[in-house]
Design a protein around this nucleic acid. Structure first.
Lengths: 251, 251
DNA sequence: CTGTTTATCGTCAGGAAGACGACTATGATC
DNA sequence: GATCATAGTCGTCTTCCTGACGATAAACAG
């Protein structure tokens, strides 16, 4: 690949990942502790440089696998995988004090994982509750009771990713990406409740999701892992767009 | 800005613009003719390199002004301006044969302009109907009756931009960005019809848009520029999100 | 056996949208 | 000036969807 540095200004290009999951009824994001300057010791979104001959989405999938061991969902195979989509690109000239870095952020929606650190650096990667991370921080390390902001502009990237997830589960079947391959209507409802931070009526929710063609496919099995009456098990159906959408309750 | 080429692979970063407007009842996009290799003589989306100390959105606004003379809407002032938002980023390693280029695409929605070439190169920039551009081309220059594809991956970028515009006018008041500062309900309806490529019922449309709080503000004036009974003039209201949304008719 | 929990079915009222009739106010045409 | 074509605006009716909520079902804990 010919490269003439005088012809155009050189940039570094990175990918950053907003990896979301639902754990214990709360929306959580994957964060890693920075080992080096700048922002040494601060939490940040996982990410890294794009390689010279690597597509952006490949770089995002590679970083995801390196940090979590997660594989991206293979459309066609029914494999257990995460949903990955491009979020936005952040290129403020001063977002990295060392050099001009343009970062392409990707959004990952994953089911709750057995171990958050499979394949990664155990003590420096963890799931953090999104609503804790996104409280406005005061910047003092341990000074107040509010969290230290993430490194770089990662607070904003995280907020954009969360907002994307919140709005996208309204009109798509993407909420199933937070669920294991087989799940109950109640489990799916608890995903919506965690992502939106609201309570939903179980009866109306049940009517809505089972009445939308292509959203859910019954597998025939039942489970009782939540206690109470056994619930039917479903897989995600082929539909990707919900029409009419799920309605997020007003504040 | 320190730059150590051994520390990270160097990329060129560009912005590409999907500039859409509605002209003569048709959705049109701005295209420029390439004067140099590669893809010499082919039509392409306007765009260019991001400068070293320039924010991505500033680069997009600069390119827009250079090509069309259009200014970006200033939120707060009631100025006549275009809507600009980031669309997506395209970084396939082989999308430009010369070097590794990552392009951040922006979507611009503009009212119909008096002259498409104000401030630009007159013979090499024009409005082209989107549905003509997006017919699948056969790649032969003048061989078939189908259009020659745009340069690079610009066909895909254009398609993504058009799809974004089509879906975004459903749940936002963004269709007003295609209208002059004062417009009638009929003119707004013709925007929806052109962007979606469907016919809408004038009576139901009128009820919907005038009944949505904050969408339209009457200015008091009337006009008869479309013939027929004079119509009330409106400005865009403060609302940005439409709830419930405009419903795009099924195919 | 009884209470608790979760799942699932049913009913009813209110709101929004599609289909479409009717009336109004212009300019164009005879 | 009467008539016609064109757009704009107001109403009505039916249908569908949702929110609120009662009622029943099937498990487990004591």
């Amino acid at each position: 690949m010919p490269y003439d540095p005088s012809a155009f200004p050189p940039f570094a290009v990175t990918v950053d990942l907003v990896v979301l999951t639902v754990r214990r009824h709360a929306l959580c994001a994957l964060v890693v502790r920075r080992g080096e300057s700048p922002y040494q010791g601060r939490w940040a979104l996982p990410g890294g440089f794009v390689r010279v001959d690597e597509d952006l989405e490949d770089a995002a999938a590679r970083e995801l696998a390196e940090e979590t061991g997660l594989r991206v969902q293979d459309p066609g195979s029914g494999s257990v995988g995460a949903h990955l989509e491009q979020l936005a690109t952040y290129g403020d000239p001063r977002r990295d004090p060392r050099m001009r870095v343009v970062s392409v952020a990707y959004l990952v929606l994953a089911p709750d994982l057995p171990s958050p650190t499979a394949g990664g650096d155990a003590h420096s990667v963890r799931w953090a509750q999104v609503d804790t991370l996104l409280e406005p921080g005061d910047g003092t390390e341990g000074g107040g009771d509010r969290p230290v902001p993430l490194a770089f502009d990662h607070d904003r990237i995280l907020a954009d990713g969360v907002e994307r997830a919140r709005s996208k589960i309204e009109y798509s079947s993407l909420a199933t990406a937070f669920c294991p391959p087989e799940f109950t209507v109640g489990e799916l409802r608890r995903v919506y409740e965690a992502v939106w931070g609201v309570a939903l009526d179980p009866r109306n929710f049940h009517r809505k999701v089972t009445g939308t063609p292509g959203f859910l496919v019954p597998t025939g099995g039942t489970t009782t892992r939540q206690g109470g009456r056994p619930a039917q098990l479903f897989r995600a159906g082929g539909a990707t767009l919900l029409n009419p959408p799920m309605l997020r309750p007003e504040i």
